[in-house]
């Protein structure tokens, strides 16, 4: 049996039919074409698949798509507003806090939520806050430097001209 699923993704209402074993991660990447969230470990250890569900960071690899029924999901693609990167994204660019880039979307989503809830963490608290995100290049220092620049209010949001965010259209059903 397949299941009807209704949710919003980056503010866009989505209505699809899904199989129950499909993870939210696969649904976002394959059904909607939003490839920002990455699969690192697939077991909830690395945080590369982090997305916001109703504002809170979750592993999309441990969440069944059907469990996101009625939810507001935000992916890293949804963090660009008014043609500007958000503060965390901008800080990553300025600090060069990316090496291979696989972990970056997860870090950006996690840090955006963490700094929203904890605007003035100590260095220790900040590091614990992002402890669920692993960088396989071990590039933590630049990531932490970037996040401190956000905490210190030194970040100017960077203008971008993104392609309009479009989801893969719903397949034609019979």
């Amino acid at each position: 049996m397949d299941y009807p699923l209704q949710l919003t993704v980056n503010g866009i209402p989505v209505k699809r039919i899904v199989e129950p074993q499909v993870r939210l991660l696969d649904f976002l990447r394959e059904d909607l074409g939003l490839t920002g969230a990455k699969e690192g470990c697939g077991t909830g250890d690395c945080g590369a698949c982090t997305v916001l569900i109703d504002g809170d960071p979750h592993h999309s690899c441990l969440t069944l798509a059907v469990e996101a029924e009625g939810a507001a999901v935000t992916t890293v693609e949804g963090m660009v507003t008014d043609d500007k990167l958000n503060e965390v994204q901008s800080a990553f660019v300025t600090a060069g806090a990316t090496q291979c880039g696989i972990c970056t979307p997860g870090f950006v989503v996690m840090a955006t939520a963490y700094l929203r809830d904890n605007p003035n963490p100590t260095d220790d608290e900040l590091r614990m806050g992002i402890a669920g995100n692993l960088c396989r290049c071990t590039g933590y220092e630049t990531i932490v430097t970037a996040l401190h620049s956000v905490i210190d209010g030194k970040v100017e949001r960077i203008e971008v001209s993104p392609e309009p965010l479009e989801l893969v259209p719903e397949p034609e059903g019979e």
């Binding site: 982090t50 592993h59 669920g132 995100n133």
Partner: peptide, 9 residues
């Protein structure tokens, strides 16, 4: 219990 992400689920 795990990370913030784990504790949210």
């Amino acid at each position: 219990l795990g990370s913030i992400q784990i504790r949210n689920r």
